[in-house]
Write a protein that binds this DNA or RNA. Structure first.
Lengths: 206, 206
DNA sequence: AGTAATATGGAAGTGACTACCATATGACAC
DNA sequence: GTGTCATATGGTAGTCACTTCCATATTACT
């Protein structure tokens, strides 16, 4: 790695760290980009070359966690879709559990500031869409499948959406009570949905 | 209804209509709030009293469609959760199908402009959260349930998320091919997930 | 008609983000 | 080392969404 890329990485990390300091200190809305740039000792225009929006500063961690797991899936040999998705979920949860403070901070900032929540949602949506297209590849490329071509897109989107839901709900539960939650077990149980296990809902008499 | 509220409704509708005209004409990003205000013959500050953000102008229709269905559920007598959610989905699809042009326009604007997509995501998330809490009410208030108190929140969030997914994927499919898609039938099939039907995925040999 | 409540328009300001240009710095051939 | 080129940086000026505040106008109520 050349000196150039090394400094790039360092600057990137410095900006991110200083931003999180300021955000946790005065809050997202009360921190200006100029303040972050000043704290990281770079010009505002340089900061924008690293992070295109203020919100991306907050969400970089979530982004790399999610898309890292997706890259893992892309490198896997053919396997049944529920197994692959199970692996994806566990990879994401591993990332989250390895950095609980970051996760908590991101959640707090998203709760407080609607623009952060909005950007978080788009990151998650984009991930879900890419996961969906990856599933389509896996279902069509490997062999001739019994499913009709049209409904594959529908099914894949649904499966990707459910996977995303399981991650969201599991992480949410875990963030609210980290000690008392076995995130992986919870997710494994929820993923039974894909395998036809249904969802344990009580019946209600009218 | 007094004269005051009548004029309010008229102004609101006028602003919305003019905004859609301009958006479809020059695009969302190339339309300024001042232009919308001028076209509706109101001051910019008045416009902001009706719509807190530019994006809400686009998303009002989606919002009322979704939350209208939620209000319907709140008025329903106790019933099994999957049946209630099925009704919610069908109400939403009814709204969408009754105004296909609006739906298509919203989709196009969300595709082109990331901030619209982001706001759309938050509207949908908020709706999902409210649906989830409504499910918790229904599952706890009516009778004593066999489910443990802790896991009800988890299960309800999962069910609400899946419902949201079904709506999203169904509407997406329908928007791409309105003529050849029976949205309600598609959604009904997908909602079988909640009832333990699983998802029709082919197996893959390694 | 008179008064209170509320809706409107405009002006001034904040801050995120963009476009652009001059300058500095690491990379590479010699 | 030295010169050259590609790229990274800092600063400036500007756009536009959105906020705050105040003076004025319009509706509702007695």
């Amino acid at each position: 790695m050349g000196l150039r890329e090394l400094k790039r990485e360092r600057t990137r990390q410095l900006i991110s760290d200083k931003a999180f300091e300021l955000f946790t200190d005065r809050g997202f809305g009360r921190t200006t980009v100029e303040q972050i740039a000043a704290a990281a000792e770079v010009g505002p225009s340089t900061l924008y070359r690293y992070y295109p929006t203020k919100e991306r500063l907050v969400l970089e961690f979530v982004e790399t966690s999610l898309f890292g797991a997706l890259d893992w899936l892309r490198d896997q040999p053919p396997m049944n879709v529920p197994d692959g998705l199970q692996g994806v979920v566990e990879r994401v949860l591993d990332q989250m559990e390895s950095n609980p403070d970051r996760v908590r901070t991101v959640y707090e900032l998203a709760d407080q500031t609607s623009s952060v929540e909005a950007h978080l949602a788009t990151v998650i949506w984009r991930w879900r869409d890419e996961l969906s297209t990856e599933l389509v590849h896996r279902l069509t490329a490997d062999s001739d499948q019994p499913l009709a071509g049209e409904s594959i897109g529908f099914t894949a989107a649904l499966a990707a959406g459910i996977t995303m839901n399981v991650i969201e709900v599991t992480v949410q539960t875990w963030v609210e009570n980290p000690a008392g939650t076995d995130a992986k077990a919870l997710a494994r149980e929820a993923m039974c949905l894909l395998r036809g296990g249904g969802i344990p809902l009580p019946t209600v008499e009218p």
